[in-house]
């Protein structure tokens, strides 16, 4: 059986989200490096033929070709030997996971935008991005405070779901955009729980406590 192929850029947070999910789910993927910076390979004709939107990552698994990160996360959770726990089976749990997954790929993207603007320095006004990022962090913090009080350590229940994995990189990398973790104790403890999951991996900017 051929392994899934992930077109990947190591410093990209979305690519890391998919590498993390694959590792947690126990899926071995073949990585193909895309030279996003400085090569702009994601805008090359060869890459655009596979991914007309010109973004990383891209996941190919047999006949399945995925260009959207949430679809990659759910696909890996569904197909990986350790993946099923990341997708609840019941309607109530599924509803919560889908709601927080949508949050991760809408409101939470402010964290990603603030980080890109901070480290790639593309002249964007940082203040509104940071304000939106902090607003999103507070929504997640308030949720995790309530969840923790109720004995549920993760955003959508008592087990880590695809939504938690989608949210983890934005928080773990927030110091790249000068947003510290001091004001988010519930998120800090949640991040420790994610780090403790079997198969957890890091990326540059997320320390590996060796």
């Amino acid at each position: 059986m051929t392994r899934p192929v992930l077109w990947n850029y190591d410093l990209d947070d979305a690519s890391y989200t998919v590498r993390l999910m694959a590792s947690l789910a126990g899926v071995d993927v073949d990585l193909r490096a895309v030279d996003v910076y400085p090569g702009a390979e994601h805008h090359s004709p060869g890459y655009l033929a596979r991914h007309p939107l010109g973004r990383v990552p891209l996941l190919e698994d047999g006949v399945v070709q995925l260009r959207q990160v949430p679809a990659m996360l759910t696909h890996l959770a569904r197909t990986g030997p350790r993946g099923t726990g990341f997708l609840p089976a019941d309607p109530v749990g599924t509803a919560a996971v889908e709601d927080w997954l949508a949050f991760a790929f809408r409101d939470w993207l402010a964290l990603s935008a603030a980080r890109s603007a901070s480290i790639f320095g593309d002249g964007v006004d940082l203040d509104p991005l940071r304000a939106a990022a902090i607003a999103a962090l507070r929504v997640a913090e308030d949720r995790l405070v309530a969840q923790s009080l109720l004995g549920s350590g993760f955003v959508a229940g008592s087990a880590a779901s695809v939504a938690d994995i989608a949210l983890f990189p934005g928080f773990a990398l927030s110091r790249d955009s000068n947003i510290d973790h001091d004001a988010f104790p519930a998120l800090r403890n949640w991040a420790r729980r994610i780090r403790a999951l079997e198969g957890f991996v890091t990326m540059p900017g997320i320390p590996d406590y060796h």
């Binding site: 510290d180 973790h181 001091d182 104790p185 519930a186 800090r188 403890n189 420790r192």
Partner: peptide, 13 residues
């Protein structure tokens, strides 16, 4: 901090 929010083995600023 709330005492319970700093777990054994954890550090915070």
């Amino acid at each position: 901090a709330l005492a319970a929010d700093l777990q054994p083995g954890a550090a915070a600023g």
